[in-house]
Design a protein around this nucleic acid. Structure first.
Length: 154
DNA sequence: GCCAACGTTGGC
DNA sequence: GCCAACGTTGGC
């Protein structure tokens, strides 16, 4: 079992919308980056843990714990002409983009902010993807020790 | 295969 | 809105 951190802009899709979704579950579609695609397709499995992170908002930070309830499968939004993430070059018989399903396990009691995570960047959270300079990947792996430490801050 | 131009991300 | 950092594109 692996752990992940998944970024989203709350104005586009945040924890409120996830909580309101049927069975508090959603497909995580629209990822159009090859590195992230490879993780979605090859590495993310049912049962993995994922932290939900809000970016580009007033207080960026970790807001919830999720579980991957379905491993990588083709991202249907790539085939939908009307979808913002439509990709004419993605062949349904050889899909280019993948997604997973995630379910909200619980909201954190409070937001664990980016600022707070940074405090520990050189020690407990050394090597964490999110804290690396210039990192823009929307899905990143999380070491289990980092997962535990972040949740211990709650 | 190089690399300049361009687009996107995301904190501030 | 600014801008650093990075990914992608496309001419050569």
């Amino acid at each position: 079992m692996k752990y992940w951190l998944m970024k989203t802009e709350p104005t586009t899709f945040g924890v409120d919308m996830l909580e309101a979704a049927p069975r508090k579950t959603t497909c995580w579609d629209g990822v159009r980056n090859y590195q992230a695609r490879n993780m979605l397709r090859d590495e993310m499995r049912r049962g993995d843990g994922a932290l939900l992170y809000h970016s580009s908002c007033e207080v960026p930070g970790v807001v919830a714990v999720m579980e991957v309830v379905r491993g990588g499968y083709p991202d249907a939004s790539a085939f939908d002409r009307k979808n913002k993430h439509f990709d004419a070059d993605s062949d349904p018989h050889d899909p280019r983009w993948f997604m997973v399903d995630v379910k909200l396990k619980r909201r954190l009691k409070r937001v664990i902010t980016l600022d707070e995570l940074r405090v520990h960047a050189a020690k407990e959270l050394d090597g964490m993807w999110l804290l690396r300079r210039g990192n823009r990947l929307s899905i990143t792996p999380l070491e289990s020790a980092h997962w535990r430490f972040i949740l211990s801050l709650e």
